[in-house]
């Protein structure tokens, strides 16, 4: 989802501290930087706290060019530029609240108090399925004009760099440029920013990963145990197969194929459910809008399921293939 040629410049103190608007021109002058834009987090409430969606006050001059993955028709963008109270909304958001172009949307400011009202002038859609279309954009100039205190500051800058390979160097150059000033910066690649943003939202990624890992290993144990029991229960049957003349390798494959089939059917069901669950959009109500089960994720999921089957079936399969018919048939 992140553009590899974009860096995000934040206030070193924290993500909610602003940066001076004056930094825009200084950033633009740095060699290797090809474009600069900025935005501000708004954090207002539409009707009810539960209707959360991200709202950004955006730089009307360069924001659109900075994000080619978000597509806004030209006429709608012109209408947006022509209306101070104009807004552009993502198509998922439009769909979610059954809005349409021309609607007037009241939003109660939380960080920036007051009742704000915006006119929907356009809709953006994502070029790729994973592009987040739950955002609400309105004009930063209007925002700056209306808000009661500290004018002339922005939430963060987004810059485009000429060469993605140059990112590490530029991050240093930028942060050094503003070092020892009253407002120091912290620059990161957009990808790292997105990750740290998620981190700020309660370490959700870590949470999901740890829950996922625990579930994964529990499944491994459960599947392995189930297979071990299944093999033990079927000791006789497996022994009969061998007595009749089936080879050890066949018995090994039989057990492995069975566990893998079980794992893949289970994994496939799980993936299908996950896909269904996210098909209608992000299930977290905008909190983590990048929920999307992509074909590569499905492939990884199936791969993991196969790996579980293989790992869980391995020991039982080996013990089944090593089984001595004579001993197995003696055991009742």
């Amino acid at each position: 989802m992140a553009g590899v040629d974009r860096l995000v410049v934040l206030n070193r103190v924290s993500i909610i501290q602003p940066l001076p608007l004056a930094y825009r021109d200084r950033l633009a002058k740095i060699p290797g930087v090809t474009k600069v834009t900025f935005a501000n987090w708004f954090g207002g409430v539409y009707q009810d706290e539960r209707n959360f969606f991200p709202q950004f006050a955006i730089d009307r001059e360069h924001y659109r060019e900075m994000y080619p993955e978000f597509v806004v028709p030209d006429d709608q963008w012109q209408a947006f530029l022509g209306d101070k109270e104009g807004a552009i909304v993502g198509e998922a958001l439009l769909e979610r609240f059954k809005w349409k172009i021309g609607d007037r949307i009241p939003i109660k400011g939380a960080i920036f108090p007051g009742n704000w009202e915006f006119n929907i002038r356009g809709v953006y859609r994502g070029r790729r399925p994973q592009d987040d279309t739950t955002q609400f954009w309105f004009r930063w100039d209007y925002f700056d004009e209306r808000k009661p205190f500290t004018k002339g500051v922005v939430g963060w800058y987004v810059i485009r760099i000429a060469k993605p390979d140059d990112a590490v160097r530029l991050v240093k150059v930028i942060d050094e440029q503003f070092a020892n000033s009253p407002t120091e910066t912290k620059t990161d690649t957009e990808k790292a920013f997105a990750a740290s943003f998620v981190k700020q939202m309660g370490n959700i990624q870590l949470l999901i990963m740890s829950v996922g890992s625990v579930v994964f290993f529990t499944l491994l144990l459960v599947t392995g145990n189930t297979m071990a029991i299944a093999v033990r229960e079927r000791t006789r049957e497996l022994a009969v197969l061998k007595a009749v003349g089936f080879r050890d390798g066949f018995v090994l494959a039989l057990v492995l194929v069975e566990t893998m089939a079980v794992a893949v059917v289970g994994g496939g069901l799980g993936l299908a459910l996950a896909k269904l669950f996210t098909l209608r959009g992000d299930p977290t109500g905008g909190l983590l809008p990048f929920f999307y089960v992509s074909p590569p994720s499905i492939a990884v999921g199936l791969g993991l399921a196969l790996a579980v089957g293989l790992a869980a079936g391995f020991l039982p399969a080996v013990s089944a293939s090593r089984l001595r018919v004579v001993d197995a048939l003696r055991r009742i």
Binding site: R236, E237, V240, K242, A243, V244, G245, L329
Partner: peptide, 17 residues
């Protein structure tokens, strides 16, 4: 031996199996 069993021996067990 496994192949030979398949070809030459028919087993009947007490437990049917």
């Amino acid at each position: 031996l496994t192949a030979w069993r398949a070809r030459h021996v028919g087993f009947v067990f007490q437990m049917y199996n």
